[in-house]
């Protein structure tokens, strides 16, 4: 099986994940924001971990963040991901941390702290994935 045929690993689809992936498919990623205390949730959930409120509003992200850590995979774990490929942990401007990929360059020594912007990548099988590029 080559990469073109390989299906992208499916997202975890819990009861609260659907609106996130719908917003990604519309290229306008949203996360739940707590109407009570303003806290942003990632991953999505039933209530706010900060104040336990259930009043959560799906709200667009600014698309800005900073790299807080990164790795490079050198082993072939998933058919759609032949090595080497990277993963980055991005601290969103809104607060949560998101594990994703850096597009356009491999991360390196000076990556931690770098500003990044949200981009939408289309995978070979058509899946749209929120990723990050250097700002």
């Amino acid at each position: 099986m080559n990469v073109i045929d390989a299906k992208s690993p499916r997202p975890v689809m819990g009861l609260y994940d659907q609106p996130l992936w719908e917003s990604v498919n519309a290229r306008g990623m949203k996360l739940q924001r707590c109407a009570g205390c303003g806290n942003w949730l990632y991953p999505p959930g039933p209530s706010c971990p900060s104040c336990l409120s259930c009043e959560l509003v799906w709200t667009p992200l600014s698309g800005r963040g900073r790299i807080v850590s990164w790795v490079v995979f050198h082993r072939h774990y998933l058919p759609a991901y032949p090595p080497p490929y990277n993963a980055v942990a991005v601290r969103l401007e809104e607060g949560p941390t998101m594990i994703s990929n850096l597009e356009g360059a491999m991360p390196g020594e000076d990556s931690i702290g770098r500003a990044v912007r949200l981009v939408y990548a289309t995978m070979p099988d058509g899946m749209i994935l929120p990723r990050w590029a250097l700002a």
Binding site: P9, V71, R75, Y77, L78, A87, I99, L129, R131
Partner: peptide, 15 residues
């Protein structure tokens, strides 16, 4: 985080 290829126990500790 597997949609981004992020998998394995080792990856958590690498990060």
């Amino acid at each position: 985080h597997s949609p981004w290829g992020f998998t394995s126990q080792g990856a958590l500790y690498a990060l």
